[in-house]
Design a protein around this nucleic acid. Structure first.
Lengths: 163, 163
DNA sequence: ATGAATGCAAAGGTTTTGCACCCCC
DNA sequence: GGGGGTGCAAAACCTTTGCATTCAT
């Protein structure tokens, strides 16, 4: 259950069901597999297809359930193994952790954004703010670091609901 | 599996009743316990004492080992139960996750700061930057939220070491 | 053909829980 | 005294791994 923040950028994914668009996950994946001489199995295709079309964050458990709901013949172990592969391929990445301490994953393709977790309704919103990013880059450089990536989670309340 | 050390219950006079500074964790804890009609047991005092005097982040496993090193009679289950209580009391909070996906805890009292995880040496640094906080507060408000707390982790490389 | 991938089950590891006993308030 | 707390062990979970088998290339 993840929505776009009221003022955040809404990402609309082109649901082109046609061939493989350059830069699409299909292309990236096949390229990665070829390069590493790994193979595109039926299970790998099915799992990738589901994992890489999630709207936003998901727990691996959730993915396992979803995959097996549609393809009961796929073993949980295979899902775990493939999520790892997709991370190595750079198509998925670990993100914030849920309340229970479980790691969440999301498509890297979905672009960089920070997160707001609403303490009232529990929903996770995404946003991107140039001023924050800028201040951050500056601060990090000033401390002698080269930033790589970051994870920014803000816990807040949406005023409307919390009245 | 895990074998438990021989466990007895022993009576130990506790010296912590001496100087309880207002706002200290002892006071906050006793206040919380009274309010919730929970009890201050010997184990709770010992576990809290260790958990709330950690310099920085710790994994719960680490805490379990440390507690049992000093107090072998305390059960791991009790440590887990008490960490949960301390979180509810607002004295501990979950923070970033380690590489292995394990949740880390830290004292809330330790004040707000963001984290830099060095991708070269693995060390975790803390910092506070007014510009970032300001930009953040502004952005959140603009989106109609009331910020509560946040978790900001930056993965970076310390230049000196990386080259 | 050949080495990667999978399913299954077992193993590993962490956290929770049921229960009888203990002890703080 | 009563209800929360604890120790212990088992259970519940989640994730990884070993191995025989299947399958993509």
């Amino acid at each position: 259950m993840v929505k776009s923040a009221p003022c955040g950028r809404k990402k609309v994914r082109d649901p082109s069901s046609a061939g493989e668009v350059p830069g699409s996950w299909e292309m990236v994946l096949t390229g990665f597999l070829r390069e590493k001489s790994l193979r595109l199995t039926d299970q790998r295709r099915k799992i990738s297809s589901i994992a890489l079309t999630q709207d936003s964050h998901f727990e691996i458990q959730e993915l396992v359930r979803e995959v097996r709901k549609i393809h009961p013949e796929i073993s949980p172990a295979t899902v775990y193994r493939n999520v790892k592969t997709l991370c190595e391929a750079g198509l998925l990445q670990e993100t914030l952790e849920s309340k229970s301490g479980v790691t969440l994953y999301e498509r890297t393709e979905s672009g960089h954004h920070d997160h707001i977790v609403c303490l009232d309704c529990g929903l996770i919103f995404e946003f991107h703010n140039a001023a924050i990013e800028k201040a951050q880059t500056k601060a990090i450089r000033a401390m002698g670091f080269l930033e790589s990536r970051h994870q920014h989670v803000i816990y807040a309340k949406c005023e409307l609901i919390s009245k």
